[in-house]
Structures are given as structure tokens and as C-alpha cells.
Computed example of a mutant assay.
Amino acid sequence: MKVFILTGAGISAESGLGTFRDKEGLWARFDPMKLATPEAFERDPEKVLAFYNMRRQNLLAASPNAAHRALARLEAGLKERGGSLFLCTQNIDDLHERAGSQEVTHMHGELLKVRCIACEAVTSWQDDVDVDTPCPSCRRTGVLRPHVVWFGEMPLFMEAIYDALLEADLFVAIGTSGSVYPAAGFVAEARAAGIRTCEINLEPSDNARLFDEGRFGPASVTVPEWVERLLA
């Protein structure tokens, strides 16, 4: 069996990382147009870098939860049975990797990396960044930005993602709002290809009606239960 899983902010919420689009989410407290666009970075790089410094330190203090660990078990279990898991995440955290997942596709980039807008080098990074921080590759200053996809930018690895989606036997969305495209359109692509679909979420998403099956409740409970059932 080939399983394609899309994860969103809901899978990391129980690890203490905020979601984005609910009434208490990150974008309810901060204006994304002032913090998460190329224009915002060009206009006020210090403010944008400070925001991502805060998020980076928050991530470093967090730990994977039972849902992350369950998906790592699923990856190993499917491999043992001759199957595969394509784990695609909208999240910029590294909790899947810390939980033991071996292959994770980050379509929105990674918070623990920085990218140079001058030489385009991508570097693993856990410290704070400011406009005086030199690029480790070209040594220029004022050129480092978070290696994340901002509003108005194209998600990463889209060709590989669509190829894996259309080869899957099962598409599962976990902890997603169903409102952020192109990821919100994956379920429709799967249905059009005759692929079975399942949503696992705290509550039904914006596109819940498109899924063949829905399982609702905290990710740390619903995801391990679903994984054990699938592997059984």
C-alpha cells in the first residue's frame, strides 16, 4: 500500500506550536502581511527576523507528540510490508523528523534553516538572525531570511508532491484547515484519480465534505488509533 499523508498545524498544536487560522491562531494575533511576505521583509527586515526568531526558539523548546511518533511507526510498518509512506507537511517545524520519520517533504520550507537572497545557499540554523548576521556561504550581511514559503511565494517540491499523490492508494489529511491552497486541493485531485481519502482532524475542515472518511478528536489520540488499525 502506498499512503500519502498531508499534515498541517493541527498535528503540532499539542506540542505547544500555535495553529494559524482559528480565532486564537497566530494570524489572529499577528498581521501576516506585515510578517510573512517578501514585501514585509524588504520593508522591515528586523521586524520579520525578530518574529521568526521567536518562532524558532518556541520550536526548539517543543517536543514531538504521540501523533508525530505514530506516523514514524507507520512509515516503518509500511516499509516492512512492502509499502511506502509519502509524508508531506505544510508545517515548517521539524517535529516529524525528531519523532523518527525518515523522509519528510516540507512544502512550506523549514524554520530551522535560513536562505541567502544573494547566493541562494540554504543553511541549517538554530540561533537568532538579524540584519548583521553574515551568510555562512558568501559572508554578506543583510541577506539572510527564513527558509520558509511566504504569502505570494510558490510552495516547494510541487512536481514531486503531485507525482506521489497520484501514485497513492490512500490520501490522508491530518490537522489541516482545508483552506490553504494548493494543499487544500489535494483531496479533490485524489478523488478525481479514484484514490480513497480520509481526514483526521480536531473538527471537520473547510473541505471535509470531499473526504470519504472523517475521524475527529485530538491528534495525539486519533492518529495513533488510526495507525494501529491501518497496520493491523
Results as ranks from 00 to 15, higher is better:
residue 98 R to A: 15
residue 56 R to H: 02
residue 229 R to E: 13
residue 84 S to A: 15
residue 99 A to Q: 05
residue 151 F to I: 08
residue 228 E to Y: 10
residue 135 C to Y: 07
residue 109 G to I: 14
residue 187 V to D: 02
residue 88 C to M: 13
residue 122 V to C: 14
residue 193 A to I: 11
residue 105 T to H: 15
residue 143 V to H: 08
residue 81 R to P: 02
residue 129 V to Q: 04
residue 18 G to P: 15
residue 27 W to S: 06
residue 77 G to S: 00
residue 144 L to H: 05
residue 45 P to G: 01
residue 57 Q to A: 14
residue 52 Y to V: 15
residue 123 T to L: 06
residue 10 G to C: 11
residue 107 M to D: 06
residue 140 R to W: 06
residue 194 G to K: 03
residue 200 I to Y: 00
residue 21 R to M: 05
residue 203 E to A: 15
residue 177 S to H: 01
residue 212 D to W: 09
residue 167 E to I: 04
residue 137 S to N: 11
residue 106 H to S: 03
residue 111 L to S: 08
residue 47 K to S: 14
residue 86 F to R: 14
residue 26 L to P: 06
residue 202 L to H: 08
residue 216 F to D: 05
residue 209 R to Q: 13
residue 227 V to F: 01
residue 223 V to K: 11
residue 130 D to Q: 01
residue 140 R to K: 15
residue 46 E to H: 15
residue 185 G to K: 10
residue 168 A to N: 03
residue 155 P to S: 02
residue 206 D to E: 15
residue 132 D to T: 11
residue 139 R to I: 00
residue 141 T to Q: 12
residue 57 Q to F: 12
residue 177 S to A: 07
residue 22 D to M: 00
residue 185 G to C: 08
residue 68 H to K: 05
residue 17 L to C: 08
residue 128 D to L: 12
residue 194 G to S: 07
residue 169 D to E: 13
residue 65 N to W: 05
residue 92 I to L: 14
residue 228 E to H: 04
residue 88 C to P: 05
residue 137 S to Q: 09
residue 125 W to R: 10
residue 8 G to I: 10
